[in-house]
């Protein structure tokens, strides 16, 4: 697959042609923050963003989606959103999260709803140009990404290095008529960006190799940190909502006004919310906030990793750190506290 270089002004032109042909979502300013939204003009695309408010997971697992329609007393009919789209500007840590979600939704029982959206997406990733306030991707080994994307862009000053990694990516980049093969200098500049980000996206520094986290958690189940931190937890689920690797959901039926037909929808849910584990008869299995707080940290650092070959399901985006009002969600703070108390090894 090819690695090209394209001047920034030519890239704008390329994005304009893309918008005219395809359904394109890209990172744009939203007040003084950034978010993924439908792209109407190439001028609105902000590849110099620090972090988006919401991770791009919403394009694959929307906050609410129709799984099927039904007739009351009759049959069920699967519903799919299968319009192809291009996603512009996914940061490496978010790309790693998408790769993990792909594995989770396709393993054991293949989720055709998630995978239909995923297979219809062309993902243009881009290396981080400006670190966000709470990013710790360098600590999690997710500051750069090597797979999952169709195209990877790296800002090297006056131009982008664009690497097409798949057939889909090649096809997309074919429209960039003014792109030229990347020269050695451009590739070296790209290496420099990678080297810088591998160290520099680290506003919170984890005191161990992330691969050690499952072992750390194996001896931390009864540690006082869960109770201490959860004491001020609002059980609001903000940490779940902004997390690129949170994918728990609830399913609900909705009857149409005719009272004869309806739809079954799934929507995001969060393990921090009270009632998440409640069953009939009012029995709730993680009733205490500390139990739910611990569950989230264990899911990221131990439970989900067991399902995806040891990869840690926290990618260091720092969104939960920013979203948490009582400031207790920071996973690095929790892990470092455990390391201080329990040591490494």
């Amino acid at each position: 697959m090819s690695v090209k270089k394209i001047a920034k002004k030519d890239f704008v032109e390329f994005v304009e042609t893309l918008i005219r042909k395809e359904r394109v979502f890209g990172v744009q300013a939203k007040g003084d923050r950034f978010d993924f939204a439908p792209l109407e003009s190439a001028q609105d695309l902000r590849l110099d963003y620090d972090v988006t408010l919401q991770p791009p997971k919403k394009f694959f697992q929307p906050p609410a989606e129709v799984l099927m329609t039904f007739e009351v007393g009759g049959g069920y009919q699967s519903q799919y959103d299968d319009e192809p789209f291009v996603l512009l500007g996914v940061h490496p840590y978010d790309m790693v999260a998408i790769n993990q979600m792909d594995e989770l939704f396709s393993q054991d029982n293949y989720d055709t709803h998630y995978m239909t959206r995923r297979n219809n997406a062309t993902i243009v990733a881009c290396d981080v140009a400006k670190p966000s306030e709470n990013v710790f991707a360098s600590s999690m080994g997710t500051a750069v990404v090597k797979s999952g994307y169709d195209v990877l862009l790296t800002d090297i000053g006056d131009s982008y290095v664009c690497e097409a990694a798949t057939e889909k990516g090649e096809k997309l980049m074919a429209a960039a008529k003014k792109a030229v093969p990347a020269d050695d200098a451009a590739l070296k500049s790209r290496e420099a960006v990678w080297a810088k980000n591998k160290k520099g996206l680290n506003r919170h520094e984890l005191k161990c190799d992330p691969a050690y986290l499952p072992k750390l958690l194996a001896k931390a189940y009864k540690h006082p940190v869960w109770e201490e931190r959860a004491k001020t937890c609002f059980s609001c689920g903000s940490c779940n909502q902004v997390c690129p690797t949170c994918y728990c959901f609830n399913v609900q039926d909705d009857v149409n006004w005719d009272m004869k037909t309806g739809k079954r929808e799934r929507a995001w849910d969060g393990c921090l919310l009270d009632g998440f584990t409640k069953v009939a008869g009012e029995h709730e299995f993680r009733k205490q906030r500390a139990d739910r707080f611990r569950h989230r940290i264990y899911r990221k650092g131990m439970y989900v990793p067991e399902k995806i070959g040891g990869q840690i399901a926290c990618v260091g985006c720092g969104r939960c750190v920013a979203a948490c009002l009582p400031d207790i969600a920071n996973p690095v703070a929790v892990y470092n506290r455990l390391i201080d108390d329990l040591g490494i090894g």
Binding site: L104, F105, D108, N109, D111, Y247, C248, F249, N250, V251, R266, D269, C271, F276, T277, K278, V279, F285, H295, Y298, R299, M302, Y303, E306
Partner: peptide
């Protein structure tokens, strides 16, 4: 447990891992 999806995705019925 609250087995909502029944196919190991939705997370509600998780007991530890």
């Amino acid at each position: 447990r609250k087995m909502k999806c029944g196919v190991g995705k939705c997370g509600h019925c998780q007991i530890n891992s």
